[in-house]
Design a protein around this nucleic acid. Structure first.
Lengths: 142, 142
DNA sequence: TATTGTTATACTCTATAACTATA
DNA sequence: TATAGTTATAGAGTATAACAATA
């Protein structure tokens, strides 16, 4: 007979611990902080978006995202233009410098995480991780 | 023929985003902060440990773990006693209150994460997540 | 009134630097 | 000298509260 599954409280505990370990490992790498990379990566892939939209996709408060966008703007990586259809909204988009930053870092393989995922995991494991991210997003959305 | 795997840079990007979303979702829940829960959960499962040992399992600096342990001690959830064999070391262990706290929160299902993992994922998906955590720990260890 | 966004402020988490005490 | 631990300090990341402007 198969071994019984460990209780879910164990999984919860291990998830909390692993999350902490990975986030700290990521932060230990030099380069732009995680939230900044997430946002410019998102803008590169999905195109311009408002602050509220960015906040929603990251499940972050709009006030917090405003800070992040302000930092990116100060660094010259994104710019804002008013939404012609709605004076309240501002559309955030990558500047050429921002696009260069995110693409160069990928092309030059300066991205520690990408490199490590390639080195430490095989193709099947990467696919497995991809599927698990969908599960984690389901948890995040609950 | 099978669809080609998306480039690893996409996986890296999605991993960063998902990690952020889950951590923020977890933090939004009332109750003890993640690092505190991790430590008392670990002590409950593995038994007493020194500050350095706790720091190593969490891949955290000993100075940072000292802060966490200080908070737990102030809250009366852990206590310290000198290691009889090595005067430099202090052994951290759960107090009865600490043990009650971690176990009650589980028994009473006050633990949002455990409950959500049970509600949102089926047994196969939880097993899949468990395997993925091992992959993430490999990344964290690299 | 509701929505979009911002600024001010504070708290959590974790790091580095500098130190003490014991081995 | 090396190791275990601490305190002081700083910085990143994010939240709540209060506000202005537009719909």
């Amino acid at each position: 007979m198969a071994a019984p599954a460990p209780p879910t409280t164990h999984l919860a505990h291990e998830l909390r611990e692993t999350l902490g370990r990975v986030v700290r490992r990521l932060r230990a790498e030099p380069g732009p902080p995680i939230p900044l990379l997430s946002v410019i990566g998102l803008l590169d892939r999905e195109g311009p978006a408002s602050v509220s939209e960015l906040a929603a996709t990251q499940r972050m408060r709009p006030q917090s995202m405003a800070q992040t966008v302000k930092e990116l703007e100060a660094a010259g990586l994104v710019s804002r233009r008013p939404d012609p259809a709605d004076g309240r909204r501002a559309i955030v988009e990558l500047t050429p410098a921002g696009r260069t930053t995110i693409r160069d870092s990928r092309a030059a393989r300066e991205d520690w995480l990408s490199t490590t995922l390639d080195d430490q995991l095989d193709a099947g494991e990467r696919a497995e991780l991809r599927r698990a991210l969908a599960l984690l997003d389901r948890i995040a959305g609950a």
